[in-house]
Amino acid sequence: MEMFSSLLVSAILMGCTYTLVAIGYCLFFGVLDVVVFCCGDIAIFGGFSIIGAYTILYSAGVLQAVPAFVAVLIMLTIAAILCAALGLIAYQFSIKPFEKSSTLMPLLSTIALGVVIKEVLGLVFQPVVNSIAAVVTSVDDPLSVVGGRNPQAMPNLIAGSGSTDERNLIIIAVTLAILIALFLFLNKTKIGLSMQAISQNKELALMTGVNVKRTITATFIIGGILLAVGGFLLSSYQTIIRFDGGAMYGSKGFSAAVVGGLKNTWGAVIGGMLLGFVEVFTAGYIPGGTQYQNIIAFLVVILFIVFRPEGIIGEKSIEKV
């Protein structure tokens, strides 16, 4: 029973982190009709920017001066801004040029951009952060950041020295808070409503005077914030972040989005949870099952695509000529 409960917690936490990136996919897909495949890498970039911000601010002595809660908020803000900027760059360079071409093009270009993000993180992260930290601080020996290609230890920012239970609770609480905020944003604000309108019928939205350009920008900002928080929670949960983790995290998030129904933001929650549960319980209850957890997770996805491509709570779409 003890094992079941601990697995349950793991599954929920995995599900939470998958959910956030899956929602990112859904938002982008809804507004642009394009799968932004580098979402995982953007999230990992978010995690790295938090480590970078931590290193720099810590050596500048800012973090010690403010309460822990405020410090986390500062770093999250920095990461969210950077992720949103990266999202906009992704839109400019790998989505916008292909608006009129086939679906293959933006797919490939976002995958390629993901590779570029990943490699740049691996190559330049450590030198850049260390040199900035060295400039900021008067101390000669800045906090050593492990080489970008090695896994980065995530400082335990949430719950400080508290127990892991406390941290897990905070992760779940933050995910819930974000979901609620997103719900309010999508349904109560003008931009949120116009995002929904574009998602449902782009031509009609254009006709009724929705500012598509502004909405797209807003989407990437919101998506960037979501992904930054996702990367932060993921790396806090795993206590470690790897520069090459984005591809796997991204494809899991995309899988969750597909299982839930690509156009349905709330389906992503169910999809993410389902994927988390399948993975954790496969690893937990099947002897030697760890090595098969990814295979089984992807098998579930393939079955969904073949037998219920519209997702768990999606609607069947009939293509019109």
Binding site: F93, S94, P97, F98, M105, L108, S109, I111, A112, L113, G114, V115, V116, E119, V120, L123
Partner: peptide, 12 residues
């Protein structure tokens, strides 16, 4: 990185 850049640049 070279693969990624080649892909991005070629596609654009």
């Amino acid at each position: 990185l070279v693969y990624g850049l080649i892909l991005v640049i070629m596609l654009i």
